[in-house]
């Protein structure tokens, strides 16, 4: 069922990438640091809850998070 959900999300969100990219370009350095901290898994519980809430409310920030996570992957991953 895993790939199934990719199809659903793509049908639902097919055209959001451009908007997301624009929003990502305007993220403050302070917020980017918080996102990077969340991506690294070093937030405390309160910070984690805040970040999850923020990502739900501002899905345009998700690509920023994804970029941070990919940057943490080993080079051969």
């Amino acid at each position: 069922m895993n790939d199934d959900f990719q199809i659903l999300f793509e049908l639902l969100e097919g055209g959001v990438q451009e908007v997301s990219g624009r929003a990502a370009a305007t993220v403050s350095s302070d917020l980017r640091e918080k996102i990077a901290k969340f991506a690294a898994g070093t937030c405390n519980e309160e910070e984690r809850d805040q970040m999850k809430k923020l990502l739900r409310e501002q899905p345009d920030l998700i690509p920023v998070l994804v970029t941070e996570i990919r940057a943490l992957r080993p080079a051969d991953a």
């Binding site: 895993n2 790939d3 959900f5 999300f9 991506a39 898994g41 690509p63 994804v66």
Partner: peptide, 16 residues
């Protein structure tokens, strides 16, 4: 969404 649309791993989700 993070797993299926953005291809994050379950391990990465678990860490966050």
């Amino acid at each position: 969404k993070l797993v299926h649309l953005h291809q994050l791993t379950q391990r990465e989700i678990a860490r966050m």
